[in-house]
Amino acid sequence: MTQQSLGEFEELVLLMVAALHDEAYGVAILEGLEEKLKKKVNISAVHVALKRIEDKGFVKSRFGGITEDRGGRRKKYYVITALGKKMLDNQYALRTSIYQQIPKISFG
């Protein structure tokens, strides 16, 4: 498989899915992101990112039980897959390694 790509927002959503562990569904992810990013995010953006990372195989989904506050609609829960975790690890390692290369300039 060629190098999978992961957009910035997709990465955030994937991180959030991983962070929420078993409780990750659309609205929960949305709220988590809004809290962390301190700005409004539209739910559709979250869904777009979710569908994309699901297509790429970084998350998998299942339907949960029916709850009343959603007009009788089931929640769709996402969990991170091993591939997704590996992707996040790689991404983290990559960034850190480049970050390390920033020269420590001293103005002394």
């Binding site: 569904y25 659309g26 869904h47 506050d69 959603r70 007009g71 609609r73 089931r74 929640k75």
Partner: peptide, 16 residues
């Protein structure tokens, strides 16, 4: 296949 999830999430956000 996407409808239920989207509708549900939208409704939840809306109600809040």
């Amino acid at each position: 296949d996407y409808l239920e999830e989207i509708e549900g999430d939208l409704t939840e956000v809306f109600i809040k």
